[in-house]
Computed example of a mutant assay.
Amino acid sequence: MKHVAIIEVLLKHAFYADQRCPDFAIEPSDETARLLRNHRCIVRSGPEGVRVLSPFDAAGQPFLPLPGDATLLFYIEVRGGDFAVVTDLTGISGRAAPVFTDAGAGTDGELGLAPADPARPRLPPGIVAAVEIRPGSAPRPAPFQVSFQARRARWAYYCVTDMAPAGGELTVVDASPAGAEGALRFSAATLDPADPTAAQIASRYPGMRCVYFVSDEPVAAREEPRKSIELRLGPDRVAGPLPNPSMQSPAKEDLLFQIVKYRAQPFQTP
């Protein structure tokens, strides 16, 4: 007798280069775990998702098929890490019981978020969302997937410089090849007098000025650094690649920043 996967749910996160979030854990609810044990199923779960394997007989049929009206419930838990920082939580924040369900799943197996239902019981503590699958009486070899999108925010660079305003034009430029998908554009912006970051820079770097650049559009966070963002003086690159703005130091909810320094005059030694 061999075991065959009858349910597979993959967890994907757009922030990570391989789309595998190391902070995920997915486990069946107590009731689902009991049902699967009673039908001799094996559950294999990890950060990448969960698989349910059922024993099949020599004729290629489930040895103990699940009831046709069975509903399998799995819980997605986030164990530490930066999930809340790097994830777009728009769809699930504020819900007592966000549930991804196979009802109406597309041909790609993508599970959709079920409409909010006040009658659903609140999820256990530490659970970010649930997954609900109705396998029916026939095996479903195609995997389902739950995709989390990366948080989007405008990127800002505070450029601290000793260069006088008449010394030339500083710009932040995405030097990606022409026509590259996802290329960013940055514009110089006026600093808000009440900006606490600008105030901190002024206190820390007296006698220097700060030039402020903001991306024209929100940028999806990603694990890999962009290697094409440069600080330029006229047509010349003077610093770069610039680091991605830190996910841990948001100036505002919809803006991330990085401080960079450019000295036109080298430090003088006695």
Rank of each mutant, 00 (worst) to 15 (best):
L36F: 12
P139I: 08
E8Y: 06
S93A: 15
P65I: 06
L73F: 13
F74L: 09
I259L: 12
R226H: 03
D18S: 09
G68P: 06
F100K: 01
P243M: 08
T269G: 10
L66H: 05
L72Q: 06
R154A: 05
F186W: 09
I127F: 03
G60T: 06
L255K: 11
R140P: 02
A199T: 12
G240W: 01
F213N: 00
V238I: 13
H3V: 11
L73N: 08
T197K: 12
T71S: 15
R134H: 07
L170Y: 06
F186H: 08
R185D: 07
C159M: 10
E8F: 04
P115F: 10
L111C: 01
E253T: 14
G179Y: 04
A198H: 14
K12H: 08
F83C: 02
V211F: 04
P28R: 03
S246W: 13
A220V: 13
A84R: 10
V238S: 05
Q149L: 11
D102E: 06
A180R: 14
E27R: 14
P196A: 07
L111Y: 01
F267H: 14
Q258V: 00
V128H: 08
V78W: 04
V43N: 07
P141M: 11
A150Y: 03
K261A: 14
V50L: 15
P270K: 11
A129S: 09
I127C: 08
R134W: 01
Q200D: 14
A180Y: 09
A129V: 05
P196C: 07
S176M: 11
A119T: 09
F257V: 04
E77S: 13
S215N: 04
L11C: 01
E27C: 05
I76M: 12
A199Y: 01
